[in-house]
């Protein structure tokens, strides 16, 4: 990947009280690149993503999108967030609005686009993920996987330049994970810049251009997926990958 740098994180530090969650994070994401962030739970992956669209304000360091600084209290934060789509682990659709209104709310109210044009785009996107029939349904009538696909579309309808995914399949039943991941793979193929936090190792390997392994608040490894999964450089990464491998350890008592 040698596109221009789109997202740059430098010297990022975040503390919650006494605890330092992120301790000097440096990396950048190029245009069209898909970066997967891996690491044991509690290592700061989600916090990193939340800092990247200003939901948390860092204690030190900075994040730039196309050269513009992102800061939680900043004047232009709402402007910048329109360029960064984010999808969360919990299905966070607005329960009082139907699917199409969920998707078009922000384009109409925030970007001041016409309702008609936003709806056309929403319907086109819904068709692409096979949920067009559900456009008048309410979130409670959808399955977890369907809700999560709608959440992705809601973010896409803002025409973002970067998409952040925070463990979007973690709360889903296993048979619904696939449909959500397929949408993300399609998106990656279209050249969307993406930063993904996930625990789905096979998916990570399939989609990533680069893997960042985070542990104890710092980047321990930053490498190509094939390299990371077959031949990790550090012991910590090895140990982490080991937890996903199952061996037949049952012994017969007789």
């Amino acid at each position: 990947m040698n596109g221009e740098i789109q997202l740059q994180v430098s010297g990022l530090v975040k503390r919650f009280g006494e605890e330092t969650v992120l301790n000097g994070i440096d990396f950048c994401v190029r245009k069209g690149e898909v970066v997967v962030v891996l690491g044991p739970s509690g290592c700061g992956k989600s916090t990193l993503l939340r800092c990247m669209n200003g939901l948390e304000s860092p204690d030190a360091g900075s994040i730039f999108l196309d050269g513009e600084a992102i800061s939680a209290g900043g004047k232009n934060i709402a402007q910048l967030r329109q360029k960064i789509g984010m999808v969360f682990q919990s299905y966070d659709l607005f329960p009082n609005k139907n699917i199409i209104d969920n998707i078009t709310l922000a384009p109409v109210k925030v970007q001041k686009r016409s309702k008609k044009e936003a709806e056309e785009q929403a319907e086109k996107l819904l068709k692409r993920v096979g949920l067009w029939e559900k456009r008048k349904a309410y979130p409670r009538e959808l399955s977890g996987g369907q809700k999560q696909r709608v959440a992705i579309i809601r973010a896409l309808c803002m025409n973002p330049e970067v998409m952040l995914f925070d463990e979007v399949t973690a709360a889903l039943d296993p048979e619904m994970v696939r449909e959500v991941l397929d949408v993300m793979i399609e998106l990656a193929n279209q050249g969307m810049t993406m930063v993904i936090v996930t625990h789905e190792m096979q998916f990570a390997r399939a989609i990533a251009d680069r893997v960042i392994f985070l542990d104890g608040g710092s980047i321990v490894e930053d490498s190509k997926p094939d390299e990371f999964f077959t031949n990790p450089k550090t012991k910590r990464a090895k140990d982490f990958l080991q937890t996903f491998a199952y061996e037949k350890r049952r012994t017969n008592i007789n």
Binding site: Q82, I84, A106, K109, V110, M158
Partner: peptide, 20 residues
Amino acid sequence: HQYDSAAALGMNRIQTFWYV
């Protein structure tokens, strides 16, 4: 997370309160 997702969609505080 309702506040978070509204914010992530670029809504300011007033819009978040009013619409969500």
